[in-house]
Write a protein that binds this DNA or RNA. Structure first.
Lengths: 235, 235, 235, 235
DNA sequence: CGCTAAGCGAGACGGTACGTCAGGTCTTTTG
DNA sequence: CAAAAGACCTGACGTACCGTCTCGCTTAGCG
């Protein structure tokens, strides 16, 4: 699930190390700075405008305090919206959190195919490692996935809008490589994604072991060449 | 993280299919049947007895309703204990849930070494797949891990008492196999655990894709022989 | 205040017993049966038609659920009108309720003067007792008066369209009787109305004691002859 | 119903005119001034103390804003209590308002029997007139009775603790007078109360006509001597 | 063996958030 | 272009749990 990282920060490995932190969406700050608090009576406001305010506030709150402290009540207060309106559009706190996250990050997914599947996987995996270790998104994604275990709405949103698309990109890349003869014809691409990105999530969510670029390289080596003691080509 | 499954039911692959469902701790039902509801005044009761009642009630509630609906208030009510007592011993709802879970399952961990690392991994992995797909423990573990993302107490408990021990067993087995020359000397055992059990958790927690024995075998094949298109020995 | 009862069903005492139940306005049911629910876009509709629908809906709702459950929102929904329209014509929920009540009951007030003030008062008073004890109007009037204590619009409407006219009729009758020499020349007619109808309201609104025809007769006897121990003519 | 006035202000007619306004319970202000706001953690507080705070706050709010603006939420806020606590003890807003009113006024009822029923009734009635016209209690009682029309809890409280006791006192006095031969043996004391105090309530709640001492005297004269044109003793 | 104090059960307390409902006010859309 | 439609914010509702704390008791443990 979710190979190509959200936020997108670096395509070629070299640029990875100095990647700028994605920050909780600069556009949010800008928007709120200009269009903030001009009390305008109690009547109707354009739906789109309200929706924007709510999502902005949700994102800000989410990045500021995480899922703990993320409350429909507080989102409403900070958005200058009413709870009623929020409940009209989002079925649960989780659904709102998901929308808020996506609204703030709006990752343009890419999984460039250079022809060298090993290099491409390495690049994507390292980007992902950077995202979940060096930016606020890491803890946030963990908390969203955590909450999704008891919030079906959030689970659905994450699978549809987050995990699904990223999985698809990686699977496509793997299939292409297989067709080029770079990978064994019997492979199951989804499983490989599970063994690369899933291994990272395992450390993020369960064991808490450190997630480094070396770790990512190691995962890749294992799955490419196997771990049995036999002649390898390279690493 | 957690290779040998809790509950442990079958060591050799053949026995897996007919494994008895682990059931939510028969000892609980027995205990509660006998020692249920004889109102006994408000004075002091032996700490051990009270503690037992609380853990039993926690486990029952946990298996009956999952983490949603698992409330300190309700545990107290069903245990005939007071909230004060619970707060005296457990720092958070998550800590209590973890203790309740372990109290009910009390897995005796084993990772038998037959000398054939491939068969041993296969057996252990299949047992784990069975646990998280065919028993109530699957959803429950997912919910516990989910809550652990925002509850440090629960996270600590899970890592210390659940993930840690299971990871250690598997790592030990892998190290043994390496020393026997069955695995490449450069391998990192923890990474391999991430790529086998972690891949299953990925599907359980994130993508929701099906987790089957075939999937487990596939994971194992990938990591043993690699996925690059080159001559393999066997599968 | 309100001597001559709304709905009015029987003028001469004898007919009282067999009075038909006033029913919550048959004309309403008829109207709603025909003009029900043909969604017709959002544009303009003849004001009169909309107004009629609203009043009908208000009356139906009022008689069905009382002032609790009587809501501008629900009236709008059941009338197929919008809240805007209602707020344009009625200043408050109470004003609408009052209008709805009068729309449904449309009492033709009468206080026939037979020349015998004692018989006339007795007849009117008994009719009023019947109205507030044997029909739905009793509870409703109580609730309207109740709400009027905190809703100036409703209070004004009730005094202008309900209490005022009825008070006037009774006062006129009493003045006529005084001019005929049947009553003491120093009397204050308004006070007498307070002591006859007001006494009934006291039981309806405050003490909850039973309101019977015997009670009405007793009120009349007291006020006609006094309660001091002295020779009376008759009762 | 409720002949002897709450707050009790004057027994003999002469003192009536200069009666001091009963003020919204001086003891409240005193209490709140001294024992206000020493934050003491979140745990339990003596029930009696909390109850006192709540009733004080309720009374203050009630006298300050009337039933409109009287909200459980605001009482809780001003009392420094929690809504939960209030809902634990009072079934509805009306019940709390009633308790708050009685807590603040704590009228010591008296209906002194001088042997002259006419003088006693006159005194009591004038006191009542003063109460409902010259003090804040008038509007408040009206609003409480108003709300009682749709709040059974409030209705019960008013009848039990307000209307009932006052009715009883007056009825007893009337019965005594009857036994002394001052009143006709056939009278129904409850009806007479309805015709004296009830007539005042009628003006207060329904017609809005002015309630003066002259009006009270007139009510008394009517009911004592009757209104038919016949020789009277005096007025 | 009797007294004391440790410590549990009970449950009320101040809070926070929930999800709902109605009141009024305003913009948009339609006839 | 006027009026109906309907979405908006506000504020209160009544409920559920949280974590804290007071109280009444019982029983264990000390004298």
């Amino acid at each position: 699930m979710s190979p190509p990282s959200p936020e997108r920060e670096a395509q070629h490995p070299a640029a990875d190390s100095g990647g700028a932190p994605p920050a909780a969406s600069p556009k949010i700050a800008a928007h709120r700075a200009t269009a903030h608090r001009e009390p305008r009576g109690r009547g109707r406001r354009p739906a789109a405008e309200v929706r924007e305010d709510i999502l902005d506030a949700a994102a800000v709150l989410l990045f500021r305090e995480g899922m703990a402290g993320f409350t429909i009540e507080r989102v409403a207060a900070e958005a200058g919206a009413s709870k009623t309106t929020i409940y009209k559009w989002w079925p649960s706190k989780g659904a709102l959190a998901a929308d808020g996250y996506f609204h703030a990050t709006e990752a343009e997914l890419e999984f460039p195919d250079t022809g060298d599947i090993r290099a491409d996987l390495r690049s994507q995996l390292r980007s992902f490692v950077h995202l979940i270790t060096a930016t606020a998104a890491g803890r946030l994604i963990a908390e969203l996935i955590g909450h999704a275990q008891t919030d079906p709405d959030l689970a659905a949103a994450l699978q549809t809008r987050y995990a699904g698309p990223r999985l698809r990109l990686a699977v496509d890349a793997l299939n292409l490589a297989r067709e080029r003869g770079q990978l064994h014809p019997d492979i199951n691409p989804e499983s490989i994604v599970d063994q690369l990105w899933g291994a990272c999530y395992h450390r993020l969510l369960v064991t808490g072991l450190p997630i480094t670029e070396g770790f990512a390289d190691n995962l890749l080596a294992n799955v490419l060449h196997g771990i049995q003691d036999q002649p390898r080509n390279d690493v």
